[in-house]
Design a binder for these strands. Structure first.
Length: 462
RNA sequence: GCACCGGUGCCCGAGUGGACCAAGGGAACGGCCUGCAAAGCCGUAAAGCCGCGGGUUCAAAUCCCGCCCGGUGCUCCA
């Protein structure tokens, strides 16, 4: 039985989908106003693994993740650049998708944009106004928090408690009847993009797009709603209020991932150049980032930095070598070792315990190597198949062929390096080890590592 | 300030009441292999007891109280 920690109750609960065998998942995608960062990667990776594992288990999954392409930050960025909102949004959406592709993240089945859903949002807002859950002011339409008893349930606070902290960080809008009330529709200001509505020209308020999209594409009472845990309040609390305010059932389970830290501190642009994904993925194998993320439970705050990425890279190299070794061994056909897959499922079923799942995989790797050393090919094959099946279920491709380093022939210096390698081989053949070592040292200073194997010498960049 | 979540070896991190009390990865060390290395495999040691101080319990890293530190949220940040 699959279990998740549901943010609404904070407890681990059995997962019972709306429809047997089918799972509907919605997770909050990015607001495309800037380059994607580590946090986007971690969050998207978390839900990628969730979806992959559910599919691996045999569920028919429908996944939806939005692109928020209209918001204050996009407007500001466009103004700063002397560009337009659609241009800014389109550019960063492209970058986002590119980086997700590098991370081998499966595309969501549907990736709707907020601007394509304005009509549906207007419908939802209209419904709320009709039901008396929302009111209109000069500056827009606001949700009346007092009308919903359950407001605050997701974040685990009462309306009174929330009211105490309201305005702690942002000035209170005088137009609102209650500081907690939040915008559903913002009246247009001069120069801003706007759409027509029964309340005059304006633009969508608090992430009402997520409600309009998720309910439209997945239906009422869909299964899982996810996102980063910084979105719990007010973002998700408000979404929930919007849906419940329309008397519609919303997410059955709320799943939130933890934040990323760099060097023990919050990630910020001043802290390092690899807080953006593009730079990081240029430096490290994207699979190393996936492995690193999976080594920490998705709900926990985690550390990402050059040290941990290097460590993950070392672990990844080991997995690649393992996959290659097993492939070269030409092992017999074998069914994946059931004990390993059972262990893997047991770990994953328990709130997606990827760290434990990886421990099962690494144990299988060691056992398979041991079996191969002992020339127990049947066991080695069964264990290797299980390990490969499990890594694949996590979206982790292993083996040198999967390495982003690509084939050695692609390296611009390949011809020159190969020449040096051949000269060294000749020297070794003549037992001129001094010359052989000199060439090896020369390559080492250029960051090239040589490996002499039974079938010849290979090289790679360290 | 208020709320929530964390603080586990040299590093990253599982474990959240009980088989001598800590998985897995990285690093370290030793062995095999190698002309020597590298890589790989095998193995070993390493937490004077899991932030600090109290408490509950037959039994706690795991529960309770206080304190210290970090993170997140408190109107648009994954």
């Amino acid at each position: 039985m699959l279990r998740f920690t549901d943010s609404l109750t904070g407890e681990k609960v059995d997962f019972v989908p709306r429809e047997t065998g089918k799972v509907s998942v919605y997770w909050c995608g990015p607001t495309v106003y800037d380059a994607p960062h580590l946090g986007h990667a971690r969050s998207t990776l978390a839900f990628d693994v969730l979806v992959r594992y559910l599919r691996w288990k045999g569920f028919a999954v429908t996944s939806v993740s939005n692109i928020t392409d209209i918001d204050d930050k996009i407007i500001n960025r466009a103004a700063d650049e002397g560009s337009t909102e659609p241009e800014v949004a389109s550019r960063f959406e492209t970058t986002f998708v590119e980086q997700m592709d590098r991370l081998n993240i499966a595309h969501p089945d549907l990736r709707p944009r907020a601007t394509e859903y304005v009509d549906r949002m207007v419908e939802v807002i209209g419904d709320l106004v009709e039901r008396g859950m929302a009111y209109t002011t000069k500056s827009g339409v606001y949700f009346d928090v007092d009308r919903l008893d359950e407001y605050g349930a997701l974040v685990g606070r009462s309306v009174d408690e929330l009211r105490e902290g309201a305005g702690a960080r942002v000035d209170i809008d005088e137009e609102k009847a209650d500081p907690l009330d939040f915008a559903l529709w913002k009246a247009a200001k001069p120069g801003e993009p706007n759409w027509d509505s029964p309340w005059g020209p304006g633009r969508p308020g608090w992430h009402i797009e997520c409600v309009a999209m998720s309910l439209h594409l997945l239906g009422d009472d869909f299964d899982i709603h996810g996102g980063g845990d910084d979105l719990v309040f007010p973002h998700h609390e408000n979404e929930r209020a919007e849906a419940l305010g329309c008397d519609r059932k919303f997410a059955r389970y709320w799943v939130h991932n933890g934040m990323v830290q760099v060097d023990g501190e919050k990630m910020s642009k001043s802290l390092g150049n690899f807080t953006t994904l593009v730079g990081l993925l240029d430096t490290w194998d994207p699979r190393a980032l996936r492995l690193l993320v999976l080594q920490t439970h998705y709900r926990r705050t985690m550390e990402i930095g050059s040290t941990t990425l290097d460590q993950a890279t070392a672990a990844l190299v080991r997995l690649d070598k393992f996959a290659d070794r097993m492939a070269e061994a030409a092992l017999p056909e074998a069914t994946a070792e059931a004990a390993v897959l059972d262990g893997f499922c047991h770990a994953m079923d328990d709130d997606l315990g990827t760290p434990q799942a990886l421990a099962v995989i690494f144990d299988a790797v060691r056992d398979a190597n041991r079996a191969l050393d002992a020339e127990d090919y049947g066991s080695a094959a069964a264990l290797a198949n299980a390990a490969l099946d499990a890594t694949a279920a996590l979206g982790l491709k292993i083996g040198a062929a999967a390495s982003s380093a690509g084939t050695l022939g692609d390296d611009p210096e390949a011809a020159e390096i190969n020449e040096l390698v051949n000269r060294r081989l000749n020297a070794r053949a003549k037992k001129d080890f001094a010359e052989a070592d000199r060439i090896r040292d020369e390559l080492a200073t250029r960051g090239i590592v040589l490996e002499d194997g039974p079938t010849g010498t290979t090289w790679r960049r360290s």
